[in-house]
């Protein structure tokens, strides 16, 4: 029972990533797309944590940690570049 609920949770998260990608493709300005990219990245971190549970491997949480640090740096770089050219 718990596994089915977690499966539904993963599917809802993937659906929200899909909805966000619509905003990524539509988004009128660059910064709209940056926001969409940031949000999709954080939801993807949660998807990785959920997959770590479903595949029963503790080591997969490390991938989520690494991505959690680096997506932040990516968003900072893009926003600063857009503001005044790095």
């Amino acid at each position: 029972m718990a596994d089915q609920i977690l499966m539904v949770a993963v599917l809802i998260s993937l659906l929200s990533i899909g909805v966000i990608l619509i905003r990524f493709i539509l988004g009128p300005s660059v910064l709209d797309r940056v926001v969409a990219f940031d949000t999709a990245g954080i939801i993807a971190i949660s998807v990785i944590v959920l997959l770590a549970h479903m595949l029963e491997r503790f080591i997969y949480v490390d991938v989520a940690l690494v991505y959690g640090l680096l997506s932040f740096i990516g968003v900072l770089v893009v926003a600063r570049y857009h503001e005044r050219g790095l």
Partner: peptide
């Protein structure tokens, strides 16, 4: 079960944020 239900609530909150990203008028 409690953990699974909490994870489901979290994913529903994600979906609401995605919906907000589509519906809101400006950046």
């Amino acid at each position: 079960m409690t953990g699974a239900v909490l994870a489901l609530i979290g994913s529903i909150i994600f979906f609401l944020s995605a919906l907000g990203l589509i519906r809101m008028p400006d950046l």
